[in-house]
């Protein structure tokens, strides 16, 4: 973006921030077609950003270190009938580990719900309802859920473990050919049809 356009974007952004949320659409309309998506993205980010970068970097890094140490301490522990093998990543809600099912011997993905989530009964109820709905589905393109479990004060969900990249990661930065795109779209649609047939509609 050239400096003039950036300047223009900033002026609209700042002007929108002076308005209550419901009146911001009027400012967005003032932006031309090219600028509008940028302005919309910035305003949405402004609403979502919360405490992002509001505490100093040294604090962020120290908290990350503490989290990492806690995750490392999880490795080798036995939770329910699973032994934790390694950390896979952090999702939108909670930490995910690769674990060994000690009774069946297979590997599973074990996801722990964060404590602020498990202390909220309404969210927990909704989550369990969704997990039950998802577990009623049997489709090769839908993650198989094995179990919702509870151990000490933590809740976890055990599911099929699948290695690979997310669709977002697959399509970011590099193009995919039409054949592959169609293949993916068919698999997605197929999974959605299967879910819809059971009355389950994903929220996005």
């Amino acid at each position: 973006m050239n400096p003039e356009r950036w300047q223009e974007l900033e002026e609209l952004f700042q002007e929108a921030l002076t308005q209550p949320r419901e009146k911001r659409a009027r400012i967005v309309e003032k932006a031309d077609e090219d600028l509008r998506p940028h302005l919309e993205a910035l305003l949405a980010a402004h609403e979502q950003a919360g405490t992002f970068i509001e505490s100093p970097a040294i604090d962020v890094e120290a908290r990350n270190m503490a989290n990492q140490k806690e995750h490392e301490d999880m490795i080798g522990r036995v939770v329910g009938h699973y032994r934790i093998l390694e950390q896979l990543g952090a999702g939108g809600m909670g930490e995910v580990y690769l674990a060994q099912d000690l009774s069946l011997g297979r590997q599973v993905a074990l996801k722990f719900l964060p404590s602020d989530f498990t202390s909220d009964e309404e969210r927990l109820r909704r989550f369990e309802q969704e997990a039950r709905a998802a577990s009623s589905l049997n489709h090769p393109n839908i993650l198989t859920i094995y179990e919702i479990g509870e151990s000490d004060s933590s809740r976890y969900i055990a599911s099929e473990f699948i290695e690979g990249v997310t669709l977002r990661e697959r399509i970011s930065g590099k193009s995919i050919n039409i054949g592959e795109a169609i293949d993916i779209a068919i698999q997605v649609s197929d999974a959605l049809i299967s879910a819809h047939s059971k009355g389950i509609v994903p929220r996005y």
Partner: peptide, 12 residues
């Protein structure tokens, strides 16, 4: 890595 199948919620 991450899951590469469609899931019902960001939870998974």
């Amino acid at each position: 890595g991450g899951a590469n199948k469609i899931t019902f919620d960001e939870v998974m």
